[in-house]
Design a binder for these strands. Sequence first.
DNA 1: GATGCTTACGATACCCGTAAAGATA
DNA 2: TATCTTTACGGGTATCGTAAGCATC
Lengths: 310, 310
Amino acid sequence: MNFQQLRIIRETVRRNFNLTEVSNALYTSQSGVSKHIKDLEDELGVELFIRKGKRLLGLTEPGKEMVKIVERMLLDAKNIKTVAEQFSQQDKGQLTIATTHTQARYALPKVVMEFKKIYPRVHLKLHQGSPTEIAQMLLEGEADIGVATEALGQIPELATFNYYSWHHSVIVPTGHTLESQQPLTLAAIAEFPIVTYHEGFTGRALIEKAFGDAQIAPDVVLSALDADVIKSYVELGLGVGIIASVAFNAVRDGGLTMLDCSHLFGENTTRIAVRRGHFMRRFAYHFIELCSPQLTEAVVTADVSVIALD
Amino acid sequence: MNFQQLRIIRETVRRNFNLTEVSNALYTSQSGVSKHIKDLEDELGVELFIRKGKRLLGLTEPGKEMVKIVERMLLDAKNIKTVAEQFSQQDKGQLTIATTHTQARYALPKVVMEFKKIYPRVHLKLHQGSPTEIAQMLLEGEADIGVATEALGQIPELATFNYYSWHHSVIVPTGHTLESQQPLTLAAIAEFPIVTYHEGFTGRALIEKAFGDAQIAPDVVLSALDADVIKSYVELGLGVGIIASVAFNAVRDGGLTMLDCSHLFGENTTRIAVRRGHFMRRFAYHFIELCSPQLTEAVVTADVSVIALD
DNA sequence: GATGCTTACGATACCCGTAAAGATA
DNA sequence: TATCTTTACGGGTATCGTAAGCATC
């Protein structure tokens, strides 16, 4: 058993059992991949993959068990290197944050600026994606820290921490008739076409829920991934927008007016997530602490370092 | 980084940084060991060991962090093999129980007999040692299950479960004057020389505590590792014995009489322990369940599989 | 002087990649 | 037929063990 074999096992699962892809991903030859799998299976005396003729189709029962352990081991192999860097490179290194447009654009900039000032030699990589993509990146070890409102909380392999809470707001072109309707009601909003976020993004679920509970069927004419796109179309008069309050800036968004509707939709909580068992550099913990001062390294590790093996 | 290097790191710590011993333990050459360490340190860019000239003296800070992770990885490497056997060998395999004399001789026999009947093809290895040795064996992966009254409860890396509770009894040569003194008192016992267990064995601590609390200083003239030795000397008239009640058998121990003293010394609880993160074969869980029916596989894994990394 | 670690060097085994053959869709 | 996996084989590399040299106690 060697590490290359373990990497191949993991990659084979990730690449849907296509060994050619695996070999490319790991920069080696198919033949080598094939042989490594066979060697490992021989050594263990168990078939790890379900085969139909020569094709691999999936994991056998022992294979499933195995992959869990293999993932842990490779995670630990990476942890070893991180620990080494911790000591040999001190304030130098890399930090990958996976986050959504909303957070990257409206919540994180001031944290990033602070962080950059403290750790000028740390290469900060901001990776943008959907909440599920963010979760995926964390699980695969491609990102250290995830920030999103959705999807992170339900995954047992991820430790999550509350970052901040926020509400939605309605935006309309300045002078819109809704401006006089204070306080806003769901029914009043639903009179107009709606422009808001995609499903699975930035609290869209709570918007659905609020209308659903009120038995109102809003006419969502356009859904977008980010507030900037939404604002553009609201400006063009396509409909009224529902966005996160933090995404509105009275100065920059001159032609628009924001209407409070914190009483209409539920409260959203944006979360910070770290993969359990993922060892992080000091500065990574510090990044989290910059987001929310009570999330100290001690608080975060207490949660991140407890893992259920199962 | 490869597994041989990891094994060498772990063994170096266990063998007190004597690379010659390490090479013997791993059936390889010193030169290889030496080079592997150097290679790994070069790869990681960190010195793992404190050196004085050519001698290794201990672990550096990064070394300490590293060793924790290395231990986990090697544990997982072993787990992989265990999982494989689980599927390829089904009812065949090996099970190592580390336990004290008392448990091996008086508590476990009926469990072992039952187990053997169910799993005739499992090679059962009973390893006898002191409670601390048992803990050590569990931590080093040399034993699957530990059974002892002492030492197991305080180690965070071990998950422990109550097996059964018991009291001490006094044994005397039949016809001894103490027989008429019912109920027994600590003072009455302390009139005679005492023969009992060694420190750190089979509830000796509670005996000390009882006498200490009563401000009585008993004259322990002989301490032994097991009840058989104690009984022999009590029979010879060296003194009165204090042993675990389970260790007395009215038929076999003909010349002796057991006197109840459950009111004098505290209750002892014998525990079953498993190293957290140590994957065990089905039959191992079954062994535990045979000891105590409420300790099902689900109950045990729920505890064993939760580990704090840090 | 005995023990323990490192370096040098030759033999071996392992790993990789090319190429050809076989299987699957 | 195009895609994918396995097997065979040769070249390169890494690992291992012996032996010699050197440091430590």
